[in-house]
Design a binder for these strands. Structure first.
Lengths: 207, 207
DNA sequence: CAGAAAACTACATCAGATGCAAAATTACAA
DNA sequence: TTGTAATTTTGCATCTGATGTAGTTTTCTG
């Protein structure tokens, strides 16, 4: 393990970062739609065609690191502790999810602009919603796998959807109303935890 | 009122319908991505350029009637009955929303294919999610307006997001697992109502 | 250093989308 | 009915994102 990456690998990482940095800078400076892929490539000193061998689309530059956080949450769900019920797993998953976001928040250089762009550019927002939606399906599947007797897949989806959906909308609306990134995260966390506690109570007191 | 629409207006309606019908038929026959706008226009006997004066994009053909249902739900929220609390409004909004969907379901000719396409084509799914997300923001705002003292805008968003998010994911996962359109709607409705009842209980018993 | 593998580049091409000005159609009033 | 104004349709040019391909350059390995 931990092989020293060769020159080839190092160069790839470097141009990848150069592309991301150039893209974010141009997007913030002159707007997402107003920036062409060709300009990004030129700024990163590669050909336009090479851009598309690093990113499948212009949008993908913004979401290149979204997998990480999703998989951290998936791991939490997939590794239940003895005695965990579904709602306990979800609670820890939410906590870990928001911790990831809060940490990333410090990487102002990347996540800050990316966040702003997703919030303001419709096509990026649509893409982000799709990504989050597909990851919710994974969360639900993982939750069902972890507690196959307690929850059907559809029931797990109902839980995940409610918790994520509440947090997402609250966070977004909060930021639209001028909240800082920190306040936005807080609003989202509180909304998710509120839904969580309501669902926990409902689960333990079947009507 | 009820002016007889002139020839100009009638023709516009006719070509609009022709475009929608041609598009759906082609999409179902040879796939969404495999169908070009030019083919749709030709099938509807207009020029390609004219297509874009009826629809802003190829995707829009699928979502041309999405506003209707949204506004019906908005009306329910905006017209509270005496004694209604936020959760009561939301309950009726959910009921009316699913009624709309269930009725539309009968228009097999249009909503059926459109639904199938949104479920299977990623770019359409992203667009649908964006549309639903923006409408949730409207729902939350309407709910806040209807009960300004009971709920802040962010709190209203948390409620709406949880109810819609749960229903949406449950419905989608259910359909992915091979459910019929009717079963899918049922799964969504049950999930939304479950979230609703949990939130109602949580609201009446503050921890 | 030579040959293999991988990455980069230029070029061609296609589909979606937009602006624009000319041509066709519809509406309306004399 | 006919002439004119308003509106729609159309063809054309153009731009951008995206993909396939073939040839060149760079890196790796023995």
């Amino acid at each position: 393990m931990s092989e020293v990456p060769g020159l080839r690998e190092r160069k790839k990482i470097r141009t990848r970062h150069a592309l991301i940095a150039a893209a974010l800078e141009l997007f913030m400076e002159k707007g997402y739609e107003q920036t062409t892929v060709s300009e990004i490539a030129t700024a990163a000193d590669v050909s336009t065609r090479t851009f598309f061998s690093y990113f499948a689309s212009k949008e993908d530059v913004i979401f290149h690191n979204s997998r990480e956080g999703i998989e951290r949450v998936l791991r939490v769900i997939a590794e239940p502790r003895p005695g965990d019920r579904a709602i306990d797993l979800l609670t820890r998953a939410v906590a870990s999810g928001f911790t990831v976001l809060a940490l990333d928040e410090r990487l102002q250089s990347e996540i800050g602009p990316a966040n702003y762009l997703v919030m303001t550019v419709p096509s990026l927002r649509a893409r982000g919603l799709l990504l989050l939606f597909e990851s919710q399906r994974e969360f639900a599947e993982a939750l069902h796998r972890a507690c196959p007797e307690e929850l059907s897949l559809v029931e797990a989806s109902a839980l995940v959807g409610a918790v994520v959906g509440g947090g997402k909308l609250a966070a977004f609306v909060s930021m639209s109303n001028g909240a800082s990134p920190g306040e936005m995260l807080d609003a989202g966390r509180r909304a998710s935890e509120f839904a969580l506690s309501a669902l926990r109570a409902a689960a333990s007191q079947p009507s």
